[in-house]
Every structure is written in C-alpha cells, then in structure tokens.
Nucleic acid binder design. Structure first.
Lengths: 293, 293
DNA sequence: TTCATAATTGCTTATAGCACACTAATGAAT
DNA sequence: ATTCATTAGTGTGCTATAAGCAATTATGAA
C-alpha cells in the first residue's frame, strides 16, 4: 500500500477534479487517474462516479474519506515530528567518559553547554570500564588512547601531551633534574599500563631518548597519581588536560619543559565516539561541536 | 511513503530480528534491511541500534512504534471493512423502474428478496422519466426497449412479448376476430409511441403481415390502456408481463393466440442497467441475480 | 451540432524493489 | 583464545511498478 495513492484520493476528493490535483502535485492527469483506479481495485469498490465532466464521490468514497483522512494526517504529523526531532537538538544526551576526564574536563563545561542548549538534558556517566555503546543507550563516549572500535565513528577531540611534573615541596627536598638521565635518582610515580611503567620517551631538537624506569609507585588511577605527586610523593608523567589547573595554581611544577615526553606508544589522544555512523542525532552533534571549540 | 516499509518496521520491532521477519513475510533478509534503512533515511533518524547479534530499538524507534502502530492497524481495518462491504451484500440498494413495471413486476417480489437478503434495504424509485444513473445515486435501473446508453452495462432481464387482448364483455358485444385483417372493424386502443400507433406486425408460420391501424384511443400510459381494455373499451396490444395475472383471472382474454404480434420495431426487452462497469457492488449483483431467477 | 475540456488508455522510459550471492561482524561454544 | 554458526549489510542484475507523453473517448455547454 502506498499512501501517495491515498493522498491523491484525498486531494481529488477535496478539489473535485483530477486535472487540478495533477497540476497541484506536478503529475500527469493520467497518473492521478491511475492512482484512483489502483485504490479502487485494492478496495474492490468504486470511490468516485465519474464522467469526463462530472466527478462525484460514491457513498463508499465518502465513508473512506471520513475514516482515512484523519489517519493520514496523524501519520504525517508523526513522521514530521520525528524528522524535526532529528533536526533540532533536544532530548536526553547520555555521555560517558572516564572518571577523571569527566571530572576534570567535561563537568566544568556542562554549565555553559546547558546555557547554550537548554533543551538538551545531559546525563554524564563516568566509568573507567568499557561502556557498551551499542546497547548502553549512550549517545557519545569519550575514549582515550587509540581508536577502540572500527565500526564506530570517532572524531579526535584533542591530542594528549604528557608533562613531567612534581610538587614544589618535593623539589625543595630533592635535586631538580636537569636532564632525563638524572631522573634515575628520583622517586618516580607511574601508571600501571605497559606504555608507561617500563619506559618513558623523551624528545628534544630531533633527539629521541628512551629512559627505562624503575618506578617507586605504580598506580592504576591517574587521579590518584596526581594526588600523590601533589603530596610530594615524587615525579610523574601526567596528561596535560589533567594538570593544567595544578600548574597554574602552583600545586605542581613542570620539569624538563624543553623535552617532549610521553609513554612508550606516543600517539595518544582523546576521542569522541558515536555509536553509529549514519544517523548522528542533532543533540550529539551539538555536544561534539561544543567540546571541539 | 509505502506502508509496507512501516509494516516491516512493526514486525521487526515485535520480533526483534530481521531474519525472522524475512521468513514470515517471504522476503530476503536484505529486503528487510533495506526497508528499515529506507524508513530511517526518510525520518532522518535511526530506529534500531544493530549489530549482527543484537537488535534494539532506539528511543526514537520506540516513540515511532508507539505512535505509528495504532495508525497502521486502524488503516488496515478501514481498508478491510470496505473490501468486506463490497463482498457481502448489504447496505441501501436504490432501484429505479418505470411506474407500471415497478408496480406489476418488481414490487410483488420485494418481500421475498428481503427475506433472502435481510441486510439489503431496498429503495424503489418508480418514475417514467429518465433517471440519471451517474449522479442519481441509483444502483440499478430497469429500462425498457433497446439499450439506452453505451457506457453503462446492461443485462437482459427478459424478452417482452406482446399479446392482443380484450375483455370478455367487449367480446360478448362484438365479433371475435379470427384474423389480423378483421381487427380493422374493432375499437383499437394503442400506446402513443410511434412503434405502436401506426401499425402492428403479425407473424405466424413464417408469414409476416403488417396491419396499419386507426386507433380509437391513443394513450400515453400502458397502465391506463390496460385499465381501459379491462373496462371493455376495445382491443389493445399489451406486454405479457403486465397482463399475465389479468389473463389468469379472466379479466382479459387473449385474441389470435396463434399469431406473434408486436409493434413496428419488434426487438423490445427489459434491461437491467448498472451505472458503472467495473465495480458492481455485491448488493446490486444479488438483486440482479434474484430478478433473473 | 460543434467545441473545448476532462478522464482514460496505450505506449515507452525510468525508477524502485526484490532475490541471490557474498562480506563482515559478533556472541557463544569449545 | 579460537572456531563456528548465525545475522546484518552490500553489490549486482532482473523484474515489476510508476511516470510522462500522446492519442482516444466522452460529455456538458455554447
């Protein structure tokens, strides 16, 4: 069943002429004629009694019009409302991110986002485990490291640069390292992941130098590492987004700022991941663009 | 918009599997996939979040289902009820016939028709003028003579034979004619129409004889002619269907029964005419078949 | 009766829909 | 972890459907 047939029926019923409907809808009159005929064949009932000069609905045609017109209208409304909903950003947006990134980067920006898009209710799910994008009813996930899943669509939110940091108090009690090599004599705090726990990579003026490390503390949470370092536990490698404020407020101090430093695999970044490629809801786009600016 | 797409969407929503729906509806799974995709493109909204193992409706899909399912159901009901109405004889049947034929032939049979088809309400419009079949909302017309209208569809209800009749009292006062020729000396009563007023045609054993007549009375109504003849006004030519009962009850007597007699143009009949060719409602068919038996 | 216009029908072309074969993905079982 | 079975998605070719154009028929009005 094609509702276009029904729509031409409704138009013919209202205008009382095949030709007029054909003009209105940019169709050949023959198409209108055939549409009506097709409907009549389907219903096994004549809907209009017609000569070339006269077009009157049959009783069946009247009944059909009465019953079908509101249904078609309601259907169009339903469709249009879905299309509109896809076009204007609104509804509930579920965002997932790691606990730390959520607290440090996302949460502080949510107030401004709400001011800009008051129709989008944000639900922020902070979890360091993998959240299932497909079934978890999540609209956007923020992921660290390299692209996690090939079927999903990702946009790079930011490159991550690591900085060698320590607290003032630690530096007051220890010698300030002047080169990577000198770090060997220091209390090093590191992440448990393989990329970080065995070696750090330093780069400056085209020179690359890999420093095998023997960590004093190995911790699974970046936030905990940060806390330890602030408390003077030693020197660590932390992502720039996490310690920006700490540096500004002097809670942490950057060491060897002339060296670019990273874990063993250096190409880490923050990714913004959508669960499906084709239909990205307007609310998701709005949030993504907001974070990218 | 094709409602088949929506119907496959509904089926997928309910069953939760493309393949199952494909089997149910004898489609290739790829067709189901494409149907859903087409709908999604139309709505610019993803309706299902799917992997090869997992199919869950999105929020939009749920909303769409809630709103569209009752509409589709209602639409199907509407269509089916029209189809059913066309299949089972019921409703109001408007029949038109000449005043005399209606009174004499149709009306006496209506009681039996009602008993057989209690769901058909009959409206019998008796008129000697032409009733417009197309706009007059008439379902069946009964017409005399030759086919009146080429676009309409007609079935022959009965051949009409004419009989030469008179009343007993008239025959007691006059000589009984033994041959057509002897009619010249009688009081002849005739219809105004040209076919009848100038000559009557007699036929027997292959012989044809045209008798020019000089009518004593010329009347425009067959019923009035009949009444006059019953009252002894003379001899006339009347259609068999009109005088059958009169002959049985002796109110009229047939003359020259061995001769087949008619007006100038002999091929008259009673026709049953439908206003349109293609869709003959069940009620009309029922009435037509009833009259033909 | 003629005329102009409306519906219809035949014919041709363009589009859409379908099945088939194949690929990719993924959850479960081993 | 790896294999396996099953399921969604894609490319391709064929067929059915729908659209326009042109010609035909019909009919109400002048």
């Amino acid at each position: 069943m094609n509702t276009d047939y029904i729509k031409t029926f409704l138009a013919v019923y209202r205008s009382g002429s095949f030709v007029e409907v054909a003009k209105d809808q940019n169709l050949a009159p023959s198409s209108v004629s055939r549409s009506i005929s097709a409907l009549e064949n389907l219903l096994k009932t004549r809907l209009f009694q017609r000569t070339t000069r006269n077009l009157t609905p049959t009783r069946a045609g009247e009944i059909y019009f009465e019953r079908i017109a509101p249904l078609i209208e309601e259907m169009d409304l339903t469709h249009q409302s879905l299309i509109d909903a896809a076009a204007t950003p609104s509804g509930r947006l579920r965002v997932t991110a790691s606990v730390t990134y959520g607290q440090v980067v996302i949460a502080p920006r949510l107030k401004l986002f709400r001011e800009r898009y008051p129709n989008i209710d944000v639900e922020l799910l902070l979890s360091d485990g993998q959240v299932d994008l497909v079934n978890g009813q999540v609209d956007i996930a923020i992921r660290h490291g390299n692209l996690p899943d090939s079927t999903l669509v990702a946009r790079k939110l930011a490159d991550v640069n690591y900085r060698l940091v320590s607290s003032k108090t630690y530096l007051e009690q220890n010698e300030i390292p002047k080169s990577p090599d000198e770090l060997r004599q220091h209390e090093l705090v590191t992440f448990v992941y393989d990329n970080f726990r065995y070696a750090w990579v330093f780069e400056a003026n085209g020179d690359t130098c890999t420093l095998p490390i023997k960590p004093a503390l190995t911790i699974s949470s970046a936030a905990a590492i940060r806390q330890c370092v602030i408390n003077g536990a030693g020197i660590s490698l932390l992502a720039d987004w996490m310690i920006e404020e700490d540096l500004r407020k002097g809670r942490l101090v950057e060491l060897l700022p002339d060296w670019k430093v990273s874990g063993a695999s250096s190409d880490s970044a923050i990714w913004l991941v959508y669960p499906s490629s084709r239909f990205i809801p307007a609310k998701s786009k709005a949030f993504a663009n907001f974070l990218l600016n």
